[in-house]
Write a protein that binds this DNA or RNA. Structure first.
Lengths: 131, 131
DNA sequence: GCGGCAATGTGCGGGTTGCATCTAGCGGCG
DNA sequence: CGCCGCTAGATGCAACCCGCACATTGCCGC
């Protein structure tokens, strides 16, 4: 009997957008060059909630504007032209730094949760301290 | 030499907003109840780029609207009244699920980067190929 | 030709954020 | 006392971002 009205627009899993999305794209591009449609499917393969395809294309353009990826039109295969993206040196540096930052974020979360996750026998509802 | 125009509004570290911010707040509240101003300072102590204070307050209200936290006015101490927040059962469930999702995201990143950073384990290089 | 798929792009509406500003209570200092 | 600063929270505005829908181009099957 939850209120039900609670608009939890946040899913129970991290949504791939913003910097999370950008970093995923850079990480995929680190392995091999790819184009938007292909990257969108790789994202889908992760199992995490996939963003809109338009968001992926816009994110790639943004990354290009930031100098983290470069692109060129690929018309070698048949079908509509593909915009092939490749990671730049700046993008690689950014990716590495950001992943490290994510590790710090993860440690922050783990640090905040440590000691309470542990089986919490005692129902320490309030561990409030005296400020 | 950079274009300079490159609008890199993304820092080299994850910025705490959106779900990242919400999850951090929930994690802090898991340990002990706290109020907005206090949580903002805890966020600052993480070293990660801190969001605007207004964003923190709005995020807390949002979490309350989603039923993940509950609040009451605390006027026990002197000074302006404080809105004390505490984690609800729903918030705890959400937090746990989201942290697990973050682990998956992290593995996706590591998986995409593995094999190129330092050959290391002979992971199956993505079997991309021709669609 | 027509529908369908691959591949990319965009306009719009709604939600989020940062910046600045505002309120309010309390304490220190001249 | 008046003033300033710190604590604590909230909000208006502009800018931004995202999901949805829709449009476009190129090739294939029928």
């Amino acid at each position: 009997m939850a209120e039900g009205s609670a608009r939890a627009r946040m899913g129970t899993e991290p949504r791939l957008h913003g910097e999370l999305l950008a970093t995923s794209l850079l990480a995929f591009l680190k392995g091999c060059n790819a184009y938007g449609y292909q990257l969108a499917r790789q994202l889908d393969a992760t199992g995490l909630p996939q963003p809109d395809s338009g968001t992926v294309y816009r994110a790639l353009r943004q990354l290009e504007g930031s100098g983290f990826v470069s692109s060129f039109w690929d018309t070698s295969d048949q079908g509509p032209a593909r915009r092939m993206y490749s990671l730049t040196a700046a993008g690689e540096l950014f990716l590495r730094a950001w992943v490290e930052g994510l590790e710090r974020y993860r440690e922050v979360l783990r640090g905040a949760l440590a000691g309470f996750e542990n089986d919490g026998t005692a129902t320490e509802t309030n561990g409030e301290g005296t400020p």
